[in-house]
Nucleic acid binder design. Structure first.
Lengths: 201, 201, 201, 201
DNA sequence: TATGAATGAGGCTTCATTCAT
DNA sequence: AATGAATGAAGCCTCATTCAT
């Protein structure tokens, strides 16, 4: 409810995106009204249209922006890591940390896809597939190289992604465990689930 | 003025629930309109109120009914199974199968909680905690008995639940793998992730 | 809210009328719903139609019945009283007492006329005129006989009626003054307002 | 899509208030629909909400505004008048004239109080009490000074107010009597009812 | 006599959006 | 860049009423 009064010109777009993300995260896209959003930003509803085309476009741009960031960052996180088990650990560490730190963004991306219209939906699903392939490639390589047990790559990919992503539905910064402990626990479970011997880190 | 042919009294409630569940699954609770629902059922919007109090009550009753069924069935599935690894396998088998077969129900339960008002929300969260405790009890016992590696029960519970539940976001009855194959794959991953030796089944 | 459970057959009509009167008094005719009424009576809305034709008819029958009673009783109260001042006092005493004791009925009659459709409205207005003529006749006679000051009969009639009727908007049985005290006060004011010398009673 | 000709911004609020007052006067608050009101104003129902928060708020603001005007004007009318009988005459003259000229406003204030929600109701009742005290103060002073007969102040206040207010339920500008005649008649009756000797004016 | 089920009409209100200023 | 005013569409829900059982 904290109205950001006095945000002029160039900063306003950023304010709208931040408030929009939070409101969608809290109430859902359908349940968030542009009245609410405008009130949070400290402008009138009609003024929003100086910064966006439609409500739907706002949602899409938020989702796309964060999918792109996810893709960029995962590649950075994997750069220079070669061994399958190491790469898996790196992926897990990155994914879990990202899902703890960027909880809202990630939740919006995951929950509000169905509110996208067909074309926007297709675009995002394609990006998601690209992201998933980062993990499935690691698993496939690991199996080929004998580092992981011979299991169905597809199922394993979905299962591990779901396991890791789950963290954003319960993690709280002031919780009992530290970020590092949570990440390590997930690395352990992911590696073991693939039949890998735990690596020293 | 006369009764519309094709929808008789006693069956109508069931029709409403089925259609409501499907529409909420497809569009989300906020996005589903009672006009839509009534049209699907073949009655007028105002007639819905002969079967429900409010839209919110419809959502709650759907969610509660399916949470109760989940609780009843998990207990039945675990009855008579004693060894931790066996119990875990039984839980995984039940949970995954339920989430493949009852995909819509389960998705609605998981995604639409935020649309419940405070009291209804509290009721359902309590039921969900009861369900989660079935798994965490198994993991806790397994660790105590040395069947599983010594890991954080809470994290492990959430991680495995998320992994298993994920199946309902991609499973399709006409997919490449059979139900049994998918279930076995998840049993394997879950057991390994806990550091259990794979059991013979 | 006290549901009168178990009112069978012949008594039900009376129960409906009583509850209807009270509800219209409390909420107004437009604001009272037949759902409410049925609930108070302990039957289903559709069952009301075994006892009345429409909601409008219920209102009319209540109003008409009580107008008729008012007419009957005022004539009884004036029977045998001859002197204008005495007749005025008798009228005032009757009118004020009736408006204290039958507060709800009288308020409904006075406030809900506008909710009657044209024909019903005309009927009731005619009855009301008949009632008013009881007072205006007394005033007219009193002026002719020199018992009252020479003033406009019409204005005096309306003014005194309004004054007396006002009692039902503030009287409470547990109030500071007794019925008799209130009645006497009004007799005094009415007589004086017409320039009559106060009579001994 | 373009602006409907014939109703410009700044005047619309006033138009809404006037039409709203008239419709509530004619049909009652509950019976007046916002569709009706919008149609009278020449805008669409949803446009009403650019000028009011809710239907209830419209009612309250109309009532409050007119109660405030009544309070302001009565004080002006009594300014500089000192003798109790003179003050009473001034009060009667003001009240009757106001109730003849502002018939609709006054009727809405008197009849629609019950449609106000609790808080709004309390506010208005308090204002009404303040208004009534103008009259009761006059009566009380008159009795103390021996200008009026010793009677119950409360009853006399209610009785005279009711008598005077009654005028708005029958007065018609094209009636037999002039405003002045009606006012004089009421002054006479009010003074006499309190046992005052008629003053020369 | 009672009622479950159905309904057309309509209740108030919110919505995203447009456009002239 | 901002907004007041307007709007069509639609939201959930209540209403009085009907009628077959």
């Amino acid at each position: 409810m904290s109205r950001t009064v006095g945000s002029f010109g160039p900063k306003t777009l950023e304010t709208i995106r931040k408030a929009g993300l939070r409101l969608i995260f809290e109430h859902g896209y359908e349940a968030m009204s542009l009245r609410q959003l405008a009130a949070e930003v400290g402008i009138r509803p009609s003024s929003l249209y100086n910064y966006m085309h439609t409500k739907q476009d706002l949602l899409f741009s938020l989702i796309e922006m964060h999918m792109q960031e996810l893709l960029d960052q995962v590649d950075a996180a994997l750069t220079g890591v070669v061994e399958p088990a190491e790469r898996l650990a790196a992926f897990v560490a990155f994914h879990v940390r990202y899902h703890m730190v960027r909880k809202s963004e990630v939740s919006v991306v995951n929950f509000e896809l169905r509110s996208l219209d067909v074309e926007h939906y297709a675009t995002v699903v394609e990006m998601r597939k690209r992201y998933e392939s980062r993990l499935s490639d690691i698993i496939e390589d690991g199996i080929k190289q004998g580092a992981f047990a011979p299991l169905d790559v597809s199922v394993a990919t979905f299962a591990i992604l779901a396991m890791l992503t789950g963290v954003c539905s319960w993690y709280r910064p002031d919780g009992r465990l530290s970020e590092a402990e949570i990440i390590d626990a997930h690395i352990g479970m992911a590696l073991r689930s693939l039949g890998a011997s735990i690596i020293a880190r």
